[in-house]
């Protein structure tokens, strides 16, 4: 599976990373290099193998339904590049 320039642009768009036209060809080469190398996995017989999804072999622990956090509005907003009153602000979104 080899990436064409349109796919490189589509992935960049999905990942929300701006890509100038000049950046597409070298990136395409690099990504295809990596993907080509990864294709060695096709040699492995994985029939009937359950995928391993995580690093830990345990079941999920659950916490009690108690309010233990929040009420830290200013700390939450302190790093905001654009704080408007008690809100985060972004360019207007049209739905």
């Amino acid at each position: 599976m080899s990436l064409d320039p349109a796919t490189v642009r589509r992935i960049a768009r999905l990942a929300r990373i701006r890509l100038d036209d000049a950046e597409v060809p070298p990136l395409q080469t690099e990504l295809n290099g990596i993907l080509g190398w990864i294709e060695q996995l096709n040699e492995v017989n994985v029939e009937g193998v359950e995928p391993l999804t995580g690093g830990a072999q345990m079941a999920l622990k659950m916490r009690a339904d108690e309010v233990t956090d929040g009420n830290i509005r200013d700390a939450v907003l302190a790093n905001a590049p654009d704080r408007a009153g008690d809100y985060f602000a972004v360019p207007k979104v049209v739905e």
Binding site: V67, R73, Y87
Partner: peptide, 19 residues
């Protein structure tokens, strides 16, 4: 997260760093 769920709280008060 451990932040509260009540309706109508002042903006961004029921927010943890996780949220």
């Amino acid at each position: 997260s451990g932040a509260a769920t009540a309706f109508g709280a002042p903006p961004n008060t029921q927010v943890s760093f996780v949220d």
